[in-house]
Design a binder for these strands. Structure first.
Lengths: 160, 160
DNA sequence: ATTTGCTCCGATAGTTTTGGTCGGAGACTT
DNA sequence: AAGTCTCCGACCAAAACTATCGGAGCAAAT
């Protein structure tokens, strides 16, 4: 429940990898190609390619189609790419319920008029959204340093 | 993305309804049956039945199989039923990634050894979990939001 | 100029999850 | 005994997700 899709996982892995290459401790700014990332993380190339395309379309990364030296690179600094942006790019608008983003006047939700849990739920959603929006790719780089944003919340043991 | 399943929605609606009946302003403590809830919210009876069964199995509600006067009632006070409990009952263990709850020694995750985003992700997950755990069915009662207000929010484009 | 290796895009299978349905068994009330 | 309810498991259909494939275009290397 509340699980990221694999595409989202792959996107985060790829972004983290690119960020490390470009901004990491042993920074070696260069363009990386799909195959390299895929092999590094043992994920299917074609699927990752699609994920990267999506990210590029949403301006989160830039594609350099320069033949053999082509590939992708971050479109902005890691701290300017929030997790919420990544997730929305990959999986569409965030929202706990279907009735969160209804277009047109006509609501699809049968119980619109008698739904008494929408208000509380939208609060939860807002909190999650803020959480995801307050974390960036940069936060994926610091391995064991407590994250500023989550610090205020009580944390318990995390799986190694 | 990060959407509740319909079963989860139904569960929350049903719990809210039962809580209202038992603890609401015009409290009229009684046992409610599946059909009543389903009709009230326009959701398929059989599916709701399954949801309620699951909730009962997890002790969140109590089933009273008393023939024609049978039905369900909350197993505890609304404040003692957290949203996290409900979601876990309905959808299994919460977790952003597959590798969050791996049983047995053998990890299924290919990139276990080279996964550099687990720590940050598990922090996010923990935050969300705490959020869901800090809210209870009681919190769903508070806002019996008048339709008028909801409508005006809709006009302003506020996600509802 | 040709080849190579890459991105890009659309289309399409395979698989899993989810939503929704059905029917029989047991229990209680009337 | 009849009726109505829960309970439980099995089942089907639809949708979403994962993964794959093929072709087009582009830029650098040769």
């Amino acid at each position: 429940m509340l699980k990221f899709s694999k595409k989202a996982d792959y996107a985060l892995l790829a972004l983290q990898y690119m960020a490390t290459v470009q901004y990491g401790i042993e920074a070696n700014p260069r363009v990386v190609n799909t195959k390299e990332i895929a092999e590094e993380h043992h994920i299917p190339v074609e699927l990752l390619a699609k994920v990267l395309q999506t990210l590029a379309k949403h301006q989160l990364i830039e594609s350099h189609h320069n033949g053999p030296k082509g590939g992708y690179a971050l479109g902005r600094e890691p701290k300017d790419i929030t997790l919420a942006q990544v997730l929305e790019a990959i999986e569409g608008p965030l929202g706990l319920t279907d009735c969160c983003h209804e277009k047109d006047g006509q609501s699809q939700c049968e119980q619109m008029n008698r739904c008494n849990i929408r208000t509380p739920l939208s609060r939860i959603q807002e909190s999650i959204f803020q959480l995801l929006n307050s974390m960036s790719i940069e936060d994926l780089l610091v391995e064991d340093t407590p994250l500023v944003i989550v610090e205020s919340l009580k944390l318990q043991g995390v799986p190694s």
